[in-house]
Structures are given as C-alpha cells and as structure tokens.
Write a protein that binds this DNA or RNA. Structure first.
Lengths: 233, 233
DNA sequence: CGAGCCCTTGATGCATTTCAACGAATGTGG
DNA sequence: CCACATTCGTTGAAATGCATCAAGGGCTCG
C-alpha cells in the first residue's frame, strides 16, 4: 500500500489541499514519506461510487483526477447534489461515523485513500499539516455557503446563470469554453429544479446569444457580462 | 480585557465548541488562563450586528447567549439567511480576510471575542484545542450541508416542515414546544420563500392539527410523525 | 386613540413542474 | 447491416405552486 508522490496528478492534488509549499515546511520530508507509505491510489470508473451514503467512514479521500459528484438521496427517491468536485478536494475528513452523502464518479477518476486513524496520527505528528487541512476545510465551508446562497435565490434562470459562472471560474480566466462532465439531470439536481426547466434555461441563454452549446455538453460563454447580468435578476 | 470562565454561559458555550472535557486535557489550565486573559465578552442588543459582511476579520467569536442570524445581502436588495445560531457556535474562525456574511442578534445576546492572531497562537501552542476546533468546524460544515439539502427540496411546505423539525431537534427530545425567536420574514429568508408562503405553510400545518401556534411565536408540535410525513412529499 | 409593524388571508398573474411527444444518439439482437 | 429498444435532451401544452399585490386584524407604543 503506497502511492508515488512524483506523479503529477498527485502533486497537483496535494498542492491544492495543503498549499503550494507543502513540501517545504520543517519535517516535510518525513511527512511525505509517511503519507506515501500509508496512502493508496484508487481508481473509479464512470458511474461508480468512491463511497456511499451511510457507509462507515474508515478512510479519508483526496480526489486526484476526473470528477465526482456528491449526492444525497431523498425519501421520495429523488436526490440532491451538493457539489461537483474536481482535483484536490478533501472527502470524508470529518470525524463522523458515517458518510452523509455519496461520491459518484462522473468520468474515469482517481483518488488517494488514507485510513482515518492514520490521518489522526498524521495530524498529531505534523501540526502544520493539520493546520493546512483545517484551512482547506474552511475554504470548502465557504464554497458551500456560496452554494447555499445560490439555492436561496428564487428564480431558476438566475441559478443556472450562476452555475455557469461557477464552471467558468473553475477552469480559470483563460478559456471561455468548457465541457460539462455531468448530465442535465445532474445539473438540475444541483441547482434544485426539474430537468425541463434546466434545459429551457440553457436554451434561452443560447437563443439570446449569451452562450452557445455544441453537442449538448460543450458550452462556450460568448458574453460573460450579460451572463452576470442575467444572474442577478 | 478578560472574561470570567466561571460564568455558566461561557462554560456551556466552550463545552459545546471544544467538547465536554475541554478542561481536562494536558495543559488545559494554561490554556484556560491564556484564553480568559485575552478574550473579551461583548454584548449585542436585539437587531444590532456582532459583525457585518465585508468587515475585515480581526476577531473570531463564540456565541454564549441569545441567538444570532447569519445573513448575506443580495444584489437586488433582498437577503438570504444561512443559519440561526445559538450558544456555542464559532464565527469567523476561517482565514478569510473579510466576513462573507453578517451576524445579527435576534435577542439580547453575548459572545466571546478573541483576536485572530491570538487564536493562531493558541492553535500553535495547544494542538489539542486546534483539533477540537477543527472538529467543531466539521460539525458546522455538516449542518450547512443539511441546510443545503433542505433548500434543494422543491416544495415550500416541505421546507417549512423540515425547518420546524430542525427547531425541534435543536431543543432536544424532551419538549415539543419552542419559541420562535425570529420573525416570519427571517424564517422566509432562511427557507427561501416569500413571507406569505411561509405564513400559509404554517397556517396549513395548524389547520391540519399537526402543529399549534400561540401568540405568533410559540410553536407546539402536536404530531411529529405527520410532520415528518409532511416534510417528505 | 392613532400610527406603525407584523401576521394572515384572498385574488391574480407569472414561473415552474408535470405530462406528453419527438428527434438524435447509442446499443442490441436477428 | 438493419429494425428495434433505450436513453438523453428539447420543446409544447396544461396544471400547479408560488410571488406579488392588496386589504384587514391584532398588537405595541407614544
């Protein structure tokens, strides 16, 4: 059971979790050695689960490639999607006994898997790491607050526009085209509306020339300014 | 600048944040002395703010009495309420530069106020405390996820029922009557609907004999089972 | 007593869900 | 290689739910 810390995907993920200089604090070499010896890389096929709701939390995970969606089932058989996560997100690092949501792979994905009791040991041994993970947790909390805010907004079109702006932000400033890795149904369950309303919202944005959609999943934002405007009314 | 750790309100709040035995770990006496020397008790009148959105984060807060609501303004002049917090919640403990929401007192309230740089020092000096705060953060995260889930639900009645069940859970298993400290408008902004819809929802539950409301703010849950049912359809 | 605030209730119009139909893309078995 | 079934996205029409507008009652405070 070990991982290769030289892999670029793993380095990128850890940098995102622990900060750019996570290899440079005092004692970091020991930490790296410890981690690579005790962590394990798991691969998940499209549509399969990294873990499921109500599973006991035996491991923490760090996503290193592909993408996952975090979902919770409702009592009526529908579901809600909390988040789409990409590289470098922490999953299950809380001290809860059971997961309160599932992580489903949207594409062929991979994650690092670390035993929870070992994580505790790492935190005790390397307070610097505990601190950085704590920071990351706070960032995640802040992202979830933003999403909470979005869902509090009343109109559906607004929420779709904000969703698209979020995707844009995630890929960085350079590009304005991105691939939606998730199905319409997933987007709808994320922003809290029916598939049809979601589809209509996207169509409307298309017709107005604010975005263009190719092959159902390739979205180009043509007029970000108007999209922002659309998001706030 | 100091607080009296003997005060029952403060003890209760700290117990909620740091765990029942926070006075019993190794070095805890020093920690308690440090904290009480550097913390400050602040009182906030009903309707006043403990801190406001966009304020620089100079201090962290722990609520010790009364209740606060955490709100964020929207671009259209409306607002969204993230949470109602009672005793023992951490506020502003993240490493963000500015608050992304305001904390408004719903009743005469109080909080402990600690300088952020001093908090950092405390964390470095007492890893055990850092760990416990981290745990508490994870719990808060989990609560926010639950709220996210609620807002993802489509019907208004559902959300109101879930809100009431949340209030019930908060006061413990013993009672089935509680005082709503917040106005209808606040509840509405919390569950994401208009005041009128909120009012109608409560009326409907009343008429069906599932709850009863006295003097507008005193709610008694008469039939929890049917309330749960109501919440899931 | 009157002013102001909050909650409730009714009426109306709009937004969204639901039901239904269709085309495109994909996969299956003959 | 071709019917056929299946899945997914889109669009239309109808029904429903919610926001908005408007009015009235209860309460508090001056």
């Amino acid at each position: 059971m070990s991982i290769e810390l030289d892999k670029i995907t793993i380095k990128t993920a850890l940098t995102s979790c622990l900060g750019r200089d996570f290899l440079a604090f005092e004692g970091s070499e020991d930490f790296v050695a410890d981690l690579s010896a005790h962590a394990e890389e798991v691969r998940v096929q499209t549509g399969d689960y990294l873990f499921k709701e109500d599973d006991p939390v035996k491991h923490g995970y760090i996503s290193i490639s592909g993408s996952f969606m975090l979902e919770r089932a409702t009592s009526e058989g529908t579901r809600h999607i909390f988040a789409f996560v990409f590289t470098g997100s922490l999953l299950g690092f809380s001290e809860q006994h059971h997961f309160t949501f599932s992580a489903k792979a949207l594409s062929e994905s991979a994650a690092i898997k670390v035993n929870m009791t070992f994580i505790e040991e790492l935190f005790d041994k390397y307070p610097e790491i505990a601190k950085r993970v704590h920071n990351k947790t706070n960032k995640i909390l802040s992202m979830i607050l933003d999403q909470l805010f979005v869902l509090g907004q009343k109109t559906a079109h607004q929420r779709i526009a904000i969703f698209l702006l979020g995707m844009l932000k995630q890929i960085g400033n350079q590009q304005n085209t991105f691939l939606l890795t998730m199905a319409r149904r997933d987007v709808a369950d994320y922003v809290g509306m029916s598939i049809e309303t979601c589809s209509r919202g996207l169509s409307k944005l298309s017709k107005q020339g604010i975005i263009s959609i190719k092959d159902n999943y390739i979205v180009t934002v043509l007029d970000e300014e108007r999209l922002v405007e659309f998001a706030s009314k």
